[in-house]
């Protein structure tokens, strides 16, 4: 029972990190119809921001806001520099561009910083655990779950209550008609990227808090997982992205707990097979893909 509860906490925590990343991919996809594979590099940039902040002895309270601001600016800069000049180009061009951005950033990190992992010392209180009745619950795991809930809540409020949020929802349905409301296309797209950057920044902080280091290629695997989560939930569907993230986290932790030792190396293969099985029965994803009119 205790182990079961702890594994549930682990699943929610890992799933939450995937959910935040998948949500970022989905927000951009919903307005542009493009999966941004350079999304993982936002995670890496967040990690390096923390690394350099620690090196330069930036006060601890400032590191988190600083890292999140850098993540948002990095995502916005990506849009401005790489994607905006291609506005009106087909989805294939945008997709390939996102791979190019990802590749270029990875090479820059390798050459300008270091190809090797850099340590990010984690404060002791984060690596600890607290006890609730019979259960030992990790601090980082709890923070991950709380951060995911908080971000999903904030994003929902933003999308429902603010004009810019409503414009993003409208653009996800019908971009040209949104422009007929006098809403600037560039502003909506830039906002979508900034939001995706913020979400990637939060998951980046959680990610490095668990692994304690940052390296140039660290963004690839999580963004791949997030992509799978987004497909699983129904591409472009924001609720689906969150559920898909938690679902993938649950499969991975479940397999980790349930599989006997000799089969463990095949865990990812088995997890992906389960995803394929789900998609065979629901090709549109758990919540249905969103089809819309693009710019």
């Amino acid at each position: 029972m205790e182990i079961f509860v702890q594994q549930c906490v682990n699943a929610l925590s890992l799933g939450g990190t995937y959910a935040l990343l998948a949500l970022g991919l989905a927000v951009v996809f919903s307005v542009l119809g493009m999966i941004n594979f350079a999304h993982g590099e936002i995670l890496t940039i967040t990690g390096y921001t923390v690394f350099f902040s620690l090196m330069l002895a930036v006060p601890a309270v400032l590191i988190i806001p600083l890292a999140l601001i850098v993540a948002m600016l990095a995502a916005a800069a990506m849009e401005r520099v790489a994607f905006r000049p291609l506005r009106g180009a087909g989805p294939t061009s945008l997709l390939i561009t996102s791979f190019a951005v990802s590749g270029i950033l990875q090479v820059l990190f390798q050459n300008l910083i270091s190809a090797r992992p850099r340590p990010v010392p984690i404060p002791d209180f984060l690596t600890g655990a607290f006890t609730v009745g019979p259960f030992h619950i990790g601090v980082i795991q709890s923070l991950s779950i709380l951060a995911t809930l908080a971000m999903v809540g904030l994003l929902t409020l933003f999308l429902k209550r603010t004009l810019l949020g409503m414009a993003i929802r409208a653009a996800a349905v019908d971009f040209p008609t949104t422009r007929l409301m006098g809403i600037r296309a560039n502003r909506v797209i830039l906002a979508a990227f900034a939001i995706s950057g913020l979400l990637a920044g939060v998951s980046g902080l959680l990610w490095i808090a668990q692994r304690g280091s940052v390296d140039p290629l660290m963004g690839f695997l999580p963004v791949l997982k997030a992509f799978i989560a987004a497909i699983l939930g129904g591409i472009g569907n924001l609720t689906g992205a969150v559920i898909g993230g938690f679902f993938l986290g649950a499969i991975e932790i479940g397999l980790q707990a349930a599989l006997p030792e000799p089969v463990q190396p095949f865990r990812d293969a088995i997890a992906l097979t389960l995803v394929v099985v789900v998609l065979l029965y629901r090709p549109q994803g758990l919540f249905g893909a969103v089809h819309s009119v693009r710019p």
């Binding site: 004009l163 409503m166 414009a167 929802r169 409208a170 349905v173 019908d174 008609t177 949104t178 409301m181 006098g182 809403i183």
Partner: peptide, 16 residues
């Protein structure tokens, strides 16, 4: 905008 409410449609209309 079908998935938005009537009120939200109108509020977006008044964006300018």
């Amino acid at each position: 905008f079908a998935p938005l409410t009537v009120e939200e449609n109108l509020r977006i209309g008044a964006a300018t």
